[in-house]
Every structure is written in structure tokens, then in C-alpha cells.
Design a protein around this nucleic acid. Structure first.
Lengths: 225, 225
DNA sequence: ATTTATTTTTAGATTAATCTAAATAATATT
DNA sequence: AATATTATTTAGATTAATCTAAAAATAAAT
């Protein structure tokens, strides 16, 4: 009876997953509605629908939580989304800030063999271009240790895995400095009076970042891509 | 007012395109319904819908024809379908008889820049793995000259571009002979009494095909992939 | 030229996904 | 604790896409 889910149902499951991943609590109607850009009434309708399919747990006025089946589906969507993002950036040459919309569509393509082959084609990547981990076929992903450049110890080396900001001006600034996801960073010095830091990118010459910029640049210390 | 079309509307336009490409006449309700695996009533509903959007011409009891706008959309879908098929076969290693279903989904992804980049990534192919021509951005495709191996002159050389049959047994037979789309064929001899032919595949050793098999193997004489 | 058969269209229902507006429950405030 | 605020749910409508069954138009056959 695993009748195919609609795009909408898949998107709701994904939204519930993302929201509860942060709060670790059951997802309330308003938050879900906002995340889905819709009304609380619509979100409520859908929550009842998904509960009836045993994909989420739901009690009136108590919010929604993913059940095993629903979580598995949500993680599959996340896996597909992130694999497609790697494809778009690594193979087609998109910038990492251009791929989200397209991946939102591609994540709903239904074909397990396609994803298996795509995964292989991409070299079994473990993180997407934004530095988020890619769940494996069983929905398991390694949690990467992260910190912003602003908070990390001097002489730390790591890889840029995320930019905590969508501001176009910031993204363009980083671009002009040659800083992108995947870049290898060495943190050289920190000026205490303003929190600015000097860094090297891919073992290149010393460059300076303001505290505001450094705070938005997340690196991971463990994984070397 | 170019409000986005639904998958369904796109699929109807594509069906109308394919049907009228063969008959060169206006597409009647029954044929459209059958092609779409639905009822004449549904097809009729949709035809009225598309006519109102000025994508097709339609008069009661007179069938439907694509208008300029509708034809352009249909050709874009065909273009996307065939480019994705090339991707699936050339890059992901699918067999050419496994890709149709997946391409049916991928063809609806909406992103012109994606298709531009995909086209480049694939090396600007002019035909898909089934040997069908890929329309360019303006909807123009070169009509390839085709003939079956059964009807072609001795010593003709060409490239397998299509198999006019979905029979699994035939496809497996071809597979075991090492015959696939893209194979270079030389037609060596033809036995008049039964119409069987001897051929070479990719300049390999002489092989024999029955007339029935030869009739289903289409080659193109001009284009060298 | 009637009759028969086929095709096409309509009328009326259904289902998924959505909405607005009103009602109800839970939470926060005084 | 009573009141005000916020969150949640329901009721009732709407739109796209579909269907069945019946009616109407066209085409084919006698």
C-alpha cells in the first residue's frame, strides 16, 4: 500500500524533518505553515493526511513528529536534493548559490537506480556544495564538527563547508576573495580589538576578513572533503 | 501572462506534437485520449483548457492543432527529454531501453540555464540514444535520413540509430550480438532467397541477421554521431 | 436517404490541495 | 482566576484534473 506520494506530501515531510532537526521537538502548525509558505489551515489539512498514512505522529494541538516510515522518506528526499546539488556544481559548473531551486525540483524524481548511479558518477560524495552532509541509502549521515572562523583557535586548518548568510553582497565579496565552498583555510592571526582575522586560502597569500565575515564562514575540522 | 504550465498540460502538448508529427493532421480526441492513457472526456476537457490559453487551435468536432506558442513548448519538452536520455546513457551508464521512464520525469524540470549547461556538458549532441534528433534551442532539428538494414544497398555503411520494436527477446538478441545504438554497421551481403543479411559491427567479424531482425534495425547514413 | 456505428461533447461527481473566515483550545498576562 | 492573546482547528468554498454515463454530432453502411 505504499502508494506514491505527491510532491506536496514529500515537501511537507521534508519541512517537518528540517524543522524538527533543529528544535528536536514536535513541529507545530504555524511553523510548518510558514516553512511551506502557506496557511496554518493548509498545513493542518496536510498533517492530518500524513498522519492517516502513518508517516507522521499527530495529536490535536500537539504538533507533528516523523514516524519511522516518514523519516526514511524525508531522508531520501534530502539525499536526492544534496546529490543533485553536487551534480549541478561539480559537473555542470553552477555556483553553489544557484542550485537550490533546481535541486528542489530534481529531488522529486522517482528512480532508485538513478540515484544509485548518480551517487557513483559523483564519486560517492559525503557532503553537498553547502557543506551539509549527504545521507547514505539507509538515511545515515556523519555529523560533521563545525565552527565559524571567528570562534576557532589560531593555526586551525579546515575546509569551508557553509556560509551562514544568503546576502548577495557577502557572497560576491567572498567570490572576489577567491573563497568558496571546498576551499582549504588556514587561520593565521586574530586581532583582538576588532575580531578580524587573517587567513590563507588554498595555501595562497595572507588575506584579511572582518569579524562579521569570519562569523559567517563555517569550516569543518575533520573531514577532508 | 505566461503562467507556468502543469506537468499534465505539458504532457498533453507533447502528445499532440507526437501524434500530429506522424499524421500531419489535427489530433482527434480519441487518439489523444489513448496516447495519454485516459478517457476521451478528460482529453476533451484538457483540449478546451489548452485552447483557451492559445497554445492549440481547437474547434468542436474538428480536433486540435498546435499553435506557435504550444509547438515551441512541445519542442522544448522533447529537447529536454532527449538531452536527459543522452545524459542517462552516456554519463550514468544506463542501457538505452531503460531511460524513457526517467526522462519522462526529468523533462519537466524547469530551468533554461540547466538545459543550456547540460547540453554543453554532453557535447551538444544532435541525437538521443534511440536515434531521434534533438531540437535545438529554437526548436529546429535536422531530419536524419534513415533506412532499415533490410532495405539498404550492399556495402552501405551507417550507424544504428533506432530499433523499431520493443520486444524484449529482440533487444536481448541484439545485446548478445553486441549490437547497440551507436554501433557502426557495414552491410556486406544479402541472401535473396530469405532476405537475411551479413553485416559487420564496429569493424568486427562477419555476423548474420535474419530478415525480421534486419527490418527492425534502422541506420542513418549521413550523420556520424 | 435512412439507419447504424462511432466519435465527440456535455453534465454532474469526485479527489487533492488549497483558501478564508469563524470557532475553539491553549497559553500568557494582569 | 479572569482576561487577553496566540495557536490550532473546523466548516465551507474553490480550482485543477479526473471520471462515468448520457446526449449530441459526425461518419459509415446499407
Amino acid at each position: 500500500m505504499a502508494s506514491e506520494l505527491s510532491f506536496t506530501e514529500e515537501n511537507y515531510l521534508k519541512a517537518i524533518y528540517h524543522i524538527s532537526a533543529e528544535s528536536n521537538e514536535s513541529v507545530n502548525t504555524n511553523a510548518l505553515a510558514e516553512s511551506m509558505n502557506t496557511t496554518p489551515a493548509s498545513a493542518n489539512d496536510m498533517v492530518k493526511r500524513l498522519a492517516q498514512k502513518n508517516l507522521i505522529g499527530y495529536q490535536k494541538y500537539k504538533g507533528a513528529t516523523l514516524l519511522t516510515k516518514g523519516k526514511k522518506i524525508a531522508l531520501t528526499i534530502v539525499r536526492k536534493h544534496r546529490l543533485w546539488e553536487v551534480f549541478l556544481v561539480d559537473k555542470l559548473g553552477f555556483k553553489w548559490d544557484e542550485v537550490h531551486e533546481i535541486a528542489e525540483q530534481l529531488e522529486h524524481i522517482k528512480s532508485p537506480s538513478l540515484i544509485k548511479r548518480l551517487d557513483k558518477f559523483l564519486g560517492f560524495p559525503t557532503m553537498d556544495p553547502h557543506g551539509d552532509p549527504i545521507p547514505n541509502e539507509d538515511g545515515i549521515m556523519k555529523q560533521t564538527r563545525r565552527a565559524s572562523i571567528a570562534e576557532v583557535a589560531i593555526n586551525t586548518r579546515g575546509i569551508i563547508v557553509a556560509v551562514n548568510n544568503d546576502d548577495t553582497l557577502l557572497l560576491q565579496h567572498l567570490d572576489s576573495l577567491g573563497i568558496k565552498l571546498g576551499s582549504r583555510v588556514g587561520v593565521l592571526e586574530r586581532m583582538d580589538f576588532d575580531g578580524s582575522v587573517s587567513i590563507s586560502i588554498d595555501d595562497g597569500p595572507k588575506q584579511f576578513l572582518s569579524k562579521a565575515v569570519a562569523e559567517n564562514l563555517m569550516i569543518t575540522l575533520t573531514d577532508t572533503k
